[in-house]
Simulated assay, not measured.
Amino acid sequence: MDGGVGLSVGAVARRLGVAPSTLRTWGRRYGIGPSRHSAGGHRRYDTTDVARLQLMNQLILDGTPPEEAARKALAAAPEDLPAQPPPQQPEPRPAWGSGGQRLAVTESTPATRALARAAMGMDAVTMQRLIDEALRRDGVVQAWQELFAPVLIGIGERHAETGAIVEIEHLLSGTLLSALAREVATAGPPITARPVVLACAAEEQHSLPVYALAASLAAERIAVRVLGARMPYEALAAAIRHLGPAAVFVWSQTPDTGDPAPLAGLPGGRPRVRLLAGGPGWADDRLPERVHRVGTLPEAIAEVHAAYGHA
């Protein structure tokens, strides 16, 4: 594999479609990591390592809690591991847009192209229609992963390159947030007594992923309480003491808001509260031991199920 030196964490992350920080967390927390080293001493994943991670990732996507998924992947015999796909080659990213504005979207499908065109044209009516259709057709999780997130990432990357299209990002994010909040508000009555509390870290303003998780859980009739952006930790602690939640999810988008130290001071609760940290802002190597790191929407949902004791 790759000249006999194995794959880096970044290369494996691209193959599996997860964040490199997620792979590092899996290795640290569950012992499922690279088994080889390069000549320079860097850790590398061999074919079997990648296959075990591929199996773990698929189990998580199917609803298995990460700890159980890792245990099954590590215990699997080599002949029972999934076959390795050929190395992925980078493909040109088609650009979509209107009025002279173009947007590159990695996951090019008719749906992402349509939403990208509407976003770049600031066509709020069409954006709303496409978002509502995707939610009805695919559900929150699939719509988020296959449509909303790819277009948002494309807009974010374009902004990082040019410093432009902030207005487009704000319009699309606001339209999405309204749609996801409506999904939460119109969901059926919850079947869980203890809710899940969802909030952004103090001073974190990017709340859209919080609403995506809330809408996903509400669709399963899990009680949620969305506290939104820029939640002071003192207020979050008060909410935990008042509500006695089964789980608490805290989102950090940037390192400026991802100081993990305040998480250690949040109440543990009786019965115990499962504390989840999501988003790329957290310093993974400094998260308190009791915090469960989640890297994807399906992984966050699986951790919530684990908080309720669901297999």
Rank of each mutant, 00 (worst) to 15 (best):
G6T: 10
G6V: 14
V12K: 08
R15L: 14
G17F: 04
A19G: 13
S21M: 09
T22V: 11
R24W: 02
Y30T: 07
Y30E: 08
G33H: 07
G33L: 09
R36Q: 15
S38R: 14
G41Y: 15
G41P: 15
A51W: 02
A51N: 03
R52I: 01
L55I: 02
N57A: 13
N57W: 01
E68S: 09
A69W: 00
A69C: 04
A69Q: 03
A70F: 03
P78F: 10
L81T: 09
P85V: 05
P87W: 05
Q89P: 01
E91D: 03
P92G: 01
R93F: 02
A95L: 07
A104R: 05
V105W: 02
T106L: 07
P110S: 04
A114I: 03
A116R: 01
A116S: 04
M120T: 06
G121Q: 02
V125N: 02
L130S: 04
I131Y: 03
A134S: 08
L135C: 05
L135P: 10
L135S: 12
D138K: 01
V141K: 02
W144Y: 06
Q145F: 06
L152F: 08
G154L: 06
R158L: 13
I165G: 06
E167N: 13
E169V: 07
H170K: 10
S173Y: 00
L176G: 03
L176V: 06
S178C: 12
A185C: 07
I191F: 06
T192E: 11
P195L: 13
A199M: 11
A199P: 11
A202F: 08
Q205N: 12
H206D: 15
A215C: 11
L217A: 09
L217E: 07
A218Y: 10
A218C: 02
R221D: 06
V224P: 06
R225I: 10
V226Y: 01
L227D: 11
R230P: 06
I240Y: 09
I240V: 14
H242Y: 12
V248T: 12
V250D: 12
W251T: 08
S252K: 00
Q253E: 15
P255W: 05
P255C: 01
A261C: 04
P262G: 02
P262K: 07
L266S: 10
R270A: 15
R270V: 11
P271H: 06
L276C: 08
D285T: 15
D285Q: 13
R286D: 04
L287R: 01
H292D: 12
V294H: 12
T296G: 10
L297E: 10
P298S: 13
P298V: 11
E299C: 13
A300L: 00
A302H: 04
E303A: 15
H305S: 12
H305V: 05
A311L: 02
